[in-house]
């Protein structure tokens, strides 16, 4: 087993095990902090795949933004003296059946298909090329995404605003 395989198995195990904790933990706070490790594991896999810019983005936006937002969501939707912060679980057996069925199907497709793998991309610094593509070939989606973000954030602020006249 070479170094790449060892790193892959470590990060893959971190990702999958903490994702299982996210889904199965009784307490919302445990789920949120396990999600932190899932995001770190996925960022490590990105580094292993040669996507350095994407790994940094993953850490900044997911860990720095989305996870903090989710923690705010947990804190704001529970009374502060409500210490256990439990999350109800329903239809557990049906959920297990559907999720494991999906897992088997996806694994079957992933292993049995002859993927058209090409020459591949040797790990190299990607930031400059990603920036060039965003400012060139993919300028329109880039601008559309920025407008989408603006609209979504303004909409979120509008939805949660307390109305004076209400």
């Amino acid at each position: 087993m070479n170094a790449e395989a060892a790193v892959f198995y470590v990060f893959g195990a971190i990702t999958v095990l903490s994702a299982a904790v996210v889904v199965l933990a009784r307490s919302l706070i445990y789920s949120a902090f396990a999600l932190l490790f899932t995001f770190f594991g996925v960022a490590g896999l990105y580094v292993l795949l040669g996507a350095d810019f994407l790994a940094a983005t993953q850490l900044l936006i997911y860990v720095g933004g989305i996870l903090v937002l989710l923690l705010f969501g947990v804190m704001l939707t529970h009374k502060l003296y409500d210490l256990d912060l439990r999350s109800e679980v329903t239809q557990f057996l049906a959920g297990i059946i559907v999720a494991s069925g999906l897992f088997v199907i996806v694994i079957f497709v992933a292993v049995r298909t002859q993927w058209a793998t090409g020459p591949g991309r040797p790990p190299s610094v990607t930031t400059a090329e990603v920036g060039r593509l965003f400012m060139g070939q993919y300028l329109l989606p880039f601008e559309a995404a920025s407008i989408l973000l603006l609209v979504a954030l303004m909409g979120a602020a509008m939805i949660v605003r307390r109305r004076r006249d209400a």
Partner: peptide, 19 residues
């Protein structure tokens, strides 16, 4: 695939919106 199935399990079985 494992991540996807676990996420699906969370969506299906949890009743808390944040979860």
């Amino acid at each position: 695939a494992a991540l996807f199935s676990l996420g699906m399990l969370g969506i299906l079985t949890r009743r808390n919106a944040v979860n």
